[in-house]
Design a binder for these strands. Structure first.
Length: 291
DNA sequence: CTGTCCCTGATT
DNA sequence: AATCAGGGACAG
């Protein structure tokens, strides 16, 4: 599932394809939960525009347009943003095969899950946004206005230090894992990296936040940054041209220490990894190594 | 603060 | 056919 590293890999790859090209036309699917800005408004707002920069904050991508507006994109659980003719199209091809779409020579034809398709004035490769489960989002923020979603995001996880986490931890009695997932505290950490960071820091996900001191908060954040930076590196190489929607194939997959490893031996002590549910999310940890 | 819901494909 | 997965908004 796309968390900060997957979104960052997407940003770097799609940024090159997107920036500086004038949008000619936008093709969308029907109005749905996915479109926080209606397809009609999106089409009108994007035609004739050029993306000047592609930024990221937490798990959001922010396409800065030449008229001062910003197109917000969130990949949700299963979102994929990719360019036409990308080298690795395994998933997209699989999807195209399932639907009745006919494949083009470039390997991908927009299907019913391709909610956004950008065509450019230069006639070059299109940019697609697919999202089977529609937990992703597309939203246009006009010049001069702001969006509550962005406003309430905390500092980006790669910029954070232990301070932000400790400050929030002092005020709350919830499990530390819940706090790590709270995008208003630190933006970008998702379920996988939260579990991995807590394992590396030796902290149980169930521990009350107020019982995590400042230096431990710092250790958790450093651990999160370490695994996410490493994931970005491997994402850039091993998963080449796309971000998997299910997390099963990413470069970091092989380096997971606890996530998704229930009943497997802890890499440090050998005790079986346990799974519990915290904040409606599965959490994996070692009862011996993490307190 | 916790529980519910959005959605679809994979798994049981 | 029922269950599960889960990011994030929202209701209670």
């Amino acid at each position: 599932m796309p968390e900060l590293p997957e979104v960052e890999v997407t940003r770097r790859r799609i940024g090159k394809l997107l920036v500086g090209r004038e949008i000619a036309r936008v093709v969308t699917t029907k109005p749905s939960y996915f479109f926080l800005t209606s397809p009609l408004r999106l089409k009108r707002a994007l035609a004739g525009r050029t993306v000047e920069r592609l930024d990221r904050h937490g798990k959001y991508l922010l396409a800065r347009l030449d008229d001062g507006a910003t197109l917000l994109l969130h990949l949700g659980m299963t979102g994929q943003l990719f360019g036409e003719g990308a080298r690795s199209l395994r998933l997209q091809q699989k999807a195209a095969r399932r639907s009745s779409a006919v494949e083009t020579p470039s390997g991908f034809t927009p299907d019913q899950h391709t909610h956004l398709q950008l065509q450019f004035v230069d006639g070059g490769p299109r940019v697609f946004f697919r999202d089977t489960r529609k937990f992703g989002k597309a939203l246009l923020v006009s010049a001069g206005s702001s969006d509550a979603r962005l406003e309430k995001l905390g500092i980006d996880a790669l910029e954070a230090d232990g301070e932000q986490l400790f400050e929030a931890a002092r005020k709350r009695s919830i499990p530390i894992k819940s706090l790590l997932l709270d995008q208003a505290v630190i933006a970008g950490i998702g379920n996988i990296y939260a579990d991995e960071a807590l394992f590396l820091a030796g902290v149980s996900p169930e521990r009350a936040a107020r019982r995590v001191d400042a230096s431990t908060c710092a250790a958790i954040v450093r651990a999160a940054q370490r695994v996410m930076r490493r994931s970005i590196e491997t994402g850039g190489s091993s998963i080449s041209d796309y971000v998997t929607p299910d997390g099963s194939d990413g470069g970091y997959q092989n380096e997971r220490r606890v996530y998704g490893r229930e009943d497997e031996p802890c890499p440090r002590c050998g005790d079986p990894i346990r799974r519990v549910v915290i904040a409606q999310r599965s959490s994996h940890f070692c009862r011996i190594c993490q307190t």
